[in-house]
Amino acid sequence: MTAQSASLQTPPVQPATARDIVLEVKDLSLGFRNADGLLPIVTDVSFSIAKGEAVALVGESGCGKSITASAIMGIAPDNAEIGGTIILNGTPISGLPPKERRKLCGRHMGFIFQEPMTALHPTLSIGRQMTDTLRHNLGLSHAAATDRAAELLDRVGIPRARDILKGYVHELSGGMRQRVMIALAISCGPSLIIADEPTTALDVTIQAQVLDLLDDMRRELNLAMLFITHDLEVVGDFCDRAVVMYAGDVVERGLSADVVRSPAHPYARGLIDAVPGHDDNRTRLTPILGTVPPVGQWPQGCRFAPRCSRADAKCQTRPALEAHIRSDVRCWYPLEAAQ
């Protein structure tokens, strides 16, 4: 079963109750302190994720997706200054001391990195890395942790789990490495998984397998998942809701099916038009002209205005994120329907 067929068979997402919410991010802002002052990176990011729900953070490289995830996990650089509120399972965690915050990683929040070759230790066996995590977070004995690690590898579809535990990351294929990362992320029973572009380095066939596995794990374990990607096509197949970011701003937020089929923000529309095969009637792709402005060089007003064909003098004032037809949009001239 592909990720697309799985999503088509899934019933519509039901409104979450307060009791269902695992992660709530309110007005998150982050900047880096340097010799010249505070350099803003992301501003006023807000979203929530319920049990069993996948929410995507979408945008080009440099839009602030990964640093937002780092702020949630508590692994942002030391010179980062973070404002706003992060609530995990009903408890505010953004103000916790670093030592207390680190205790949440693994046990309550799991992280799937983009590149396992840099995330996994090259000189420690797969088994050592998994059992150390299990013993530290769950207090298991070495034997119990080894049994649990083998069960986890088997659960994510890795054959000969006991043999793999004795091996090293460089001995595995890209797809197998990412399966090990998924096993590590779910190993201690977290309620939230953050997946930072987990399929970027994989070929198309393996991408589909990893997405299917993530989808299965999310539904089986009733996990809340934050899925970071630049690919809106994947979002439409895999995620329930989408948060589109541009230059540190949330520019559109809504159900993923609505954002993909009928985006209201010109930037979201541009991401869709740049995807090969999205519209079978097109003979050429339509790229978004220009590039994301460097941090610290954001234009006044709408940050997308220099690249937007609809921009005028009004766009020199920053628009608010407001409810539109199907989604929340930060734009003075949102699109009324799919174009």
Rank of each mutant, 00 (worst) to 15 (best):
A6E: 15
A6Q: 15
S7M: 15
Q9A: 14
T10E: 14
P12A: 11
P12Y: 03
D20N: 10
I41K: 07
T43M: 12
S46P: 00
F47Q: 09
I49L: 00
I49S: 02
K51F: 04
A56Q: 04
L57E: 05
V58C: 00
S61R: 09
K65V: 05
I72D: 04
M73I: 14
A76Y: 02
T85P: 06
I87N: 13
I93W: 03
K99L: 09
R101N: 02
L104D: 08
G110P: 07
I112M: 10
P116W: 15
M117Y: 06
L124A: 09
I126P: 01
N137T: 05
H142L: 09
H142K: 09
R148A: 08
E151D: 10
L152V: 08
D154E: 14
V156E: 09
P159G: 06
A161M: 10
K166H: 06
Y168F: 13
S173C: 05
G174C: 10
Q178K: 15
Q178M: 14
M181S: 15
G189P: 04
I193A: 05
D196F: 10
T200E: 08
D203G: 11
M217A: 10
R218W: 02
T229V: 04
V234S: 05
V235E: 03
D240F: 03
M245W: 07
M245G: 07
G248C: 15
D249G: 10
D249A: 15
D258H: 13
H265Q: 03
P266C: 03
Y267D: 03
I272H: 08
A274F: 02
G277K: 15
D279P: 00
L289V: 11
T291K: 13
P293Y: 14
C302G: 10
R303K: 15
F304W: 03
A305D: 06
R326C: 01
V329F: 00
V329T: 06
R330N: 00
W332Y: 11
L335A: 04
E336S: 05
